[in-house]
């Protein structure tokens, strides 16, 4: 492969260093997230509009946001997800279930964020 020969030594070192950084972040996160305290925050236009303690949810709970782009959120015990969104890309829906601190689903068009709080 002639094309691959254009990769310089510095490029390889860069990839290696990046790989190590990413691996370290992942390891650190796995260690940090061992204690489970799950509070989901629903943020719209920069304001927390609702907090849900996911460990205390017994029956599945639907939350519908109507002002602007309509979004339906489903909270269950230990997990939460965006079920439906009236936006074009549906990235927040595709994100699926959020169950770890730091997990988040973001809908950029409607300025809505669902995030599980990271304990201090």
């Amino acid at each position: 492969m002639k094309t691959l020969r254009s990769i310089k030594k510095a490029d390889l070192i860069l990839v290696l260093v990046l790989g190590i950084i990413i691996a370290l972040i992942w390891l650190w996160n796995g260690h940090h997230n061992s204690k489970q305290d799950l509070v989901a925050e629903i943020i719209r236009n920069g304001q927390i509009i609702q907090k849900v303690d996911l460990n205390k949810v017994k029956n599945p709970k639907y939350i519908t946001l109507k002002n602007g782009i309509k979004i339906t959120i489903l909270a269950e015990k230990g997990r939460i997800r965006v079920l439906h969104a009236d936006c074009p890309n549906k990235i927040c829906v595709k994100t699926g279930w959020l169950s770890q601190p730091g997990d988040m689903a973001i809908c950029v068009p409607s300025d809505t964020i669902v995030v599980i709080d990271v304990p201090d």
């Binding site: 790989g19 990413i22 972040i25 992942w26 920069g46 964020i113 995030v115």
Partner: peptide, 23 residues
């Protein structure tokens, strides 16, 4: 920029995954 438009710095939690994709 996202931090400014969403008023939410937590979005930086995506950075590690984004770094992984940048390779």
């Amino acid at each position: 920029m996202a931090t400014f438009v969403l008023h939410f710095a937590g979005i930086f939690l995506y950075l590690p995954a984004m770094l992984a994709f940048s390779i």
